[in-house]
């Protein structure tokens, strides 16, 4: 078992969750309740990674990460060494993008499901918008958050094409578990590939089970 690859996969998934869920919450809340022009454009952009071939995403990310681009300059300014492509940080950035719809959409659905009169009633009883968010919206939308976290986790572990293109299969840096399986196949080590596949299968199963369990619990506010 390639534990280092599993470590990298789990770190990637954790970073994706920690960075993406707050961002997705803001986006989802805005998408759920806004009616401004341009809303559907934003929604379309967010959904794009769902249908975009991973090679297309990988190509654009590599272009954006190339030395000399603004992103690469920013990475250097923030103290990053070397290139953003083929680095773990670059992989995290890629994960934020390819996971965007998986994080935003379940949370958006959950916010949409909160009837407007519930929030109105909260304001009427004197709760500030921050308090309303923490004490009313967040608990009601919680199943959506659980779904988003589980999906981002599973998808970060599973993504292959983008990770291989942007990360480049560097042992100990960007060789995630799913890339390690591909690598083991080429090493003609099908036993090793089989063990890692089984582990990823189990993790994915648990993630989906969590999503289903949280969906069953989802009840209306009444």
């Amino acid at each position: 078992m390639d534990w280092r690859a599993i470590d990298i996969s789990l770190s990637l998934a954790l970073w994706a969750i920690v960075l993406l869920i707050p961002l997705a919450t803001l986006l989802a809340r805005w998408l759920a309740w806004t009616r401004v022009r341009g809303r559907s454009l934003v929604a379309t952009l967010i959904a794009l990674p769902l249908v975009l071939p991973p090679t297309v995403l990988g190509f654009y990310l590599l272009e954006a990460f190339a030395p000399g681009t603004p992103l690469a300059a920013l990475f250097r300014a923030l103290g990053g060494s070397g290139s953003l492509a083929f680095s773990f940080e670059g992989l995290v950035l890629a994960a934020l993008i390819f996971n965007l719809p998986f994080a935003v959409q379940p949370i958006e659905r959950a916010f949409e499901a909160i009837p407007p009169h519930v929030r109105e009633a909260a304001w009427v009883s004197g709760l500030g918008s921050w308090q309303t968010f923490w004490r009313i919206e967040l608990p009601l939308a919680w199943p959506g958050f659980v779904t988003a976290i589980a999906l981002v986790f599973a998808h970060s572990l599973g993504e292959f094409g983008v990770v291989l293109m942007v990360g480049g299969n560097i042992e100990g840096v960007t060789r995630t578990a799913s890339v390690a399986i591909y690598d083991k196949m080429q090493a003609l080590d099908s036993a090793g590939a089989g063990r890692m596949s089984l582990l990823l299968l189990a993790i994915s199963f648990v993630a989906i089970a969590i999503v289903n369990a949280s969906a069953r619990r989802r009840g209306g506010p009444e």
């Binding site: 590599l62 190339a66 030395p67 070397g82 290139s83 492509a85 083929f86 680095s87 480049g168 560097i170 840096v173």
Partner: peptide, 8 residues
């Protein structure tokens, strides 16, 4: 990859 800055 090396030309694109891969850290080898």
């Amino acid at each position: 990859q090396i030309m694109r800055g891969a850290p080898f």
